[in-house]
Write a protein that binds this DNA or RNA. Structure first.
Lengths: 228, 228
DNA sequence: TCATTTATGATAGTATTACTATTATATTTG
DNA sequence: CAAATATAATAGTAATACTATCATAAATGA
């Protein structure tokens, strides 16, 4: 992973930003510190003014990169899904056996996030927290359909589709491949949230990931006998 | 259902409101029109000023019932979960067979919502839309833990626990009863959203509910053979 | 019935937000 | 080194999410 990705740039849909934040030092500081500040304050209390103060820059300068804080959230979550997709594809690509492949995929998609030194200005652990706590706010808006047309959610949908394809590779007759795929990807985020905040309705221990639950769910849904 | 509930009042945690909206005509108009207006504008663009204009009342009067629009959302979603819980309990209570019981439960929890004439000022169909589009915003906040302590999410958690208990009644050795229960309840909301907005990653037809998917998911997870 | 409590309405005010617009000053590049 | 480009500084705006105060209307109870 390290060496493969170290020369890559995560490409984000150009409609999401006004000026590519990867193209300048200020842009990178905006992204880097957006992650820190959204994690600290929550997306609702996050403002460009506060971000400007944090990076010693001016509010108006940030507006030249992103037209709104909503688009910063779209940018960050797109970055996350793209990064996850890379991990998924690189890790499972060489696996021939469709059962082993989907098993590995579930691990990637549901595990606790680890630091990735390839992108120095992105703190992946905090970014994952942001995805857990804020992602649904990016699409639960009156503008979803319009933004969907502009490709704001393309990476996320492509990720769901990849898992969908792996499901069908195991069982071409399974009727609910998309539903099951999105259940794993979105459900994993939700289970992480429940573990941290609604502990009385979570089966997970503090450091535990929902991986085994989702493996069990998918394997049984596809009639794969568990081997262990 | 009709006759049973027609004399009942849905009780909501007193900490959620300042003055019980069920205790006055104005209160009921606030609730009734909050549903209409949040559905129309989305929660983000919904304000007490606009609501006041809609009901021909004053912003300041609304503030005597709810301390914030956030609390209106908590109130409405609590109402919805309580109403769903009643339906769940009344409908499944008499069923002895745990498999038939959980099957019925899944239907109640995942079906498309029908009008309920028992609560004249509440439009349950629009309320369900609000739950789909806005519920997660009610807990994805920096104040969750505090509000959770104040019981803001009690009904939702109790509903998950009821399904959890039904799962264990079928298979006491199933390890992920809470995770599966919340997957059904929250997943159903999410699948409704995907059907309406991200159609390319949904298996559902426009009028179809995700009921069959969730039946299949739960039955296979609990090793219940499908009969049909 | 009338005094009192209680509910509602009207108005004003505040700090903050989410921007837009303009102008000035650095910094980069050809 | 001039011109283009990026960033900073400042000001301004309409709207939001309230709080506070005072006035008036409606309900209640003695």
């Amino acid at each position: 992973m390290q060496s493969l990705l170290s020369n890559l740039k995560i490409n984000i849909n150009e409609k999401i930003y006004l000026k590519d934040p990867e193209s300048s030092a200020l842009g990178k500081r905006i992204v880097e510190n957006s992650i820190l500040l959204i994690d600290e304050l929550g997306f609702d209390a996050f403002t460009f003014k506060k971000l400007g103060a944090k990076i010693g820059s001016n509010e108006s300068s940030i507006y030249r990169y992103f037209e709104s804080k909503h688009n910063v959230l779209i940018y960050l979550t797109s970055w996350y899904w793209t990064w996850l997709e890379y991990q998924l594809v690189f890790t499972t690509n060489s696996i021939e056996n469709p059962i082993q492949k989907i098993e590995k995929a579930i691990v990637i998609l549901t595990r606790n996030t680890v630091i990735d030194s390839d992108f120095s200005h992105i703190n992946e652990v905090l970014l994952k927290q942001i995805v857990i706590n804020e992602y649904s706010k990016s699409y639960l808006t009156k503008e979803v359909d319009e933004e969907n047309k502009d490709g704001y959610f393309k990476v996320y949908k492509r990720l769901v589709t990849r898992l969908h394809d792996m499901i069908l590779a195991v069982d071409a007759n399974y009727t609910y491949a998309f539903s099951l795929a999105s259940t794993v990807i979105d459900g994993a985020l939700h289970q992480h949230f429940l573990k941290d905040h609604f502990t009385t309705i979570s089966d997970l221990k503090p450091e535990e990931s929902p991986t085994n639950y989702f493996k069990d769910l998918v394997f049984k849904s596809l009639n794969i006998s568990t081997h262990e």
